[in-house]
Simulated scan of single mutants.
Amino acid sequence: MEKLSHMILKWEVSFSWQPFKISRQGLTLSYLFFVDDLLLFAKATETQVLVVKDCLKQFSLASGLIFNLEKSKLFISPNIHATFASRLSKVCGIPLTDDLGKYLEVPLIHKRASKKMYSYIIDRIMIKLDSWKGKILSLVGMRILIQSTTSAILLYNAIDSLTYLDV
């Protein structure tokens, strides 16, 4: 994957690949690599879709690895008209989605965060606490059990969320 990152950066320098701008004056983002997953970012234009597809094709030829576009998902900003998004999906051969799902049990958020998005954390904590025999513990023991359980679950989710933002 290091070779792919070098290829993407080379295409960026040559102004072929136009990365996604996080804000008007802010940083740009062209890819995020995880263990065996990757997220690619580019402007929502037909030209850019073809550039990304060509870059992946060249990487496949050089490495022998094959990208399965049918297992991939194409997420396009809700600010882009639906018919244009459909056309981009057809051009690149990747099915369009409005929800990227979860990665390591943490939702990939592509809109403003809400309480509902993180309600699964409270549910997990309640299931853990209900399954234990808290009745035989003293109040101090219950407190320690609750603190250790909740901090471990919250820490895991916080670290996973930071992973998406810090790369």
Score class of each variant (00 low, 15 high):
residue 3 K to T: 10
residue 4 L to H: 05
residue 5 S to L: 03
residue 11 W to H: 13
residue 14 S to H: 10
residue 14 S to K: 12
residue 18 Q to C: 12
residue 23 S to D: 08
residue 25 Q to Y: 13
residue 27 L to M: 11
residue 27 L to C: 11
residue 29 L to Y: 03
residue 31 Y to N: 11
residue 31 Y to V: 01
residue 33 F to E: 06
residue 34 F to P: 05
residue 35 V to F: 13
residue 38 L to F: 15
residue 38 L to I: 14
residue 40 L to R: 05
residue 42 A to H: 04
residue 42 A to K: 01
residue 47 T to M: 09
residue 47 T to E: 13
residue 51 V to L: 02
residue 54 D to Q: 15
residue 55 C to Q: 01
residue 57 K to R: 14
residue 59 F to D: 02
residue 62 A to R: 09
residue 62 A to N: 13
residue 72 S to Q: 05
residue 76 I to P: 14
residue 77 S to R: 06
residue 78 P to T: 12
residue 78 P to F: 09
residue 79 N to T: 06
residue 81 H to Q: 13
residue 83 T to G: 03
residue 83 T to H: 14
residue 84 F to M: 06
residue 86 S to N: 15
residue 87 R to P: 02
residue 87 R to A: 15
residue 87 R to M: 12
residue 87 R to K: 15
residue 89 S to Y: 09
residue 90 K to M: 08
residue 90 K to T: 14
residue 91 V to Q: 07
residue 92 C to S: 08
residue 96 L to Q: 10
residue 99 D to Y: 10
residue 103 Y to K: 01
residue 104 L to M: 06
residue 104 L to E: 04
residue 105 E to H: 08
residue 110 H to T: 13
residue 113 A to M: 03
residue 113 A to C: 07
residue 113 A to N: 08
residue 115 K to L: 05
residue 116 K to Y: 06
residue 118 Y to A: 04
residue 120 Y to S: 00
residue 120 Y to Q: 01
residue 121 I to P: 01
residue 121 I to W: 00
residue 121 I to R: 03
residue 124 R to D: 04
residue 126 M to N: 12
residue 127 I to W: 00
residue 128 K to V: 02
residue 131 S to H: 03
residue 133 K to Y: 05
residue 133 K to I: 00
residue 136 I to R: 10
residue 137 L to I: 00
residue 138 S to W: 04
residue 139 L to Q: 11
residue 139 L to H: 11
residue 143 R to S: 12
residue 143 R to V: 02
residue 149 T to P: 04
residue 149 T to N: 11
residue 154 L to S: 09
residue 157 N to A: 04
residue 159 I to Q: 13
residue 160 D to Y: 06
residue 161 S to K: 02
residue 162 L to E: 09
residue 163 T to S: 11
residue 164 Y to V: 06
residue 165 L to N: 12
residue 165 L to K: 15
